[in-house]
């Protein structure tokens, strides 16, 4: 019976600690987008991105609250939410994917990685592959990336009257600082 208990204890310890050890969370992540069109440049940023990254399982996930994008002009912000992103119907954009890198992401250092996964914006899910960097520090992990998103891919409709104001493709920048999950 002693052996059973010891066995159980080892199993319990093993199964609970191994998985959470390399899990990091970001609560105030940053994401911005920039649209450059003949008539107008549009920029907005969001500082409430939440994300989890597991450096052992090499998984990463994001949740972006659409209504938290801040624009310079309040009219743009209103149109962004109501006309284009329909944030009342699709309040969040999400991403879930896996990280591939030739290196083990254990030692402190900066790694160039490729992240592949499912990006959901405006209720439409697409498989995307983006390049990024992961900086593993003493206690925190910083992830950043830049990529392009084509509005048409996510069924974000731009009326013909404003095609010269809104770019077909927007430049997205992501930067997140993660801390270990307790």
């Amino acid at each position: 019976m002693k052996q059973v208990i010891i066995g159980l204890a080892i199993l319990l310890l093993g199964s609970t600690t191994v998985f959470s050890q390399h899990k990091y969370r970001a609560d105030k992540g940053f994401v911005s987008f920039f649209s450059s069109a003949p008539l107008e440049d549009i920029y907005a940023e969001n500082k409430t991105v939440i994300s989890l990254v597991d450096l052992v399982k090499r998984e990463i996930a994001f949740v972006v609250t659409i209504a938290d994008f801040q624009f310079e002009k309040s009219l743009m912000q209103e149109h962004f939410n109501e006309k284009y992103m329909e944030s009342h119907k699709y309040p969040k954009a999400t991403f879930e994917g896996t990280i591939s890198s030739p290196d083990e992401l254990k030692e402190p250092g900066t790694y160039t990685v490729t992240v592949t996964g499912e990006l959901t914006i405006h209720g439409v899910t697409k498989t995307v592959e983006v390049e990024g960097t992961i900086m593993v520090g003493e206690s925190e992990v910083v992830a950043s990336s830049e990529f392009k998103v084509k509005l048409e891919d996510y069924k974000v409709k731009v009326p013909r009257l404003v095609v010269r104001n809104i770019a077909e493709e927007v430049q997205v920048k992501v930067r997140l600082t993660y801390y270990p999950v307790q």
Binding site: A61, V63, E96
Partner: peptide, 10 residues
């Protein structure tokens, strides 16, 4: 999975 876990925090 991570996304489900995040959604509970969102």
């Amino acid at each position: 999975n991570l996304l489900d876990e995040l959604s509970t925090h969102a």
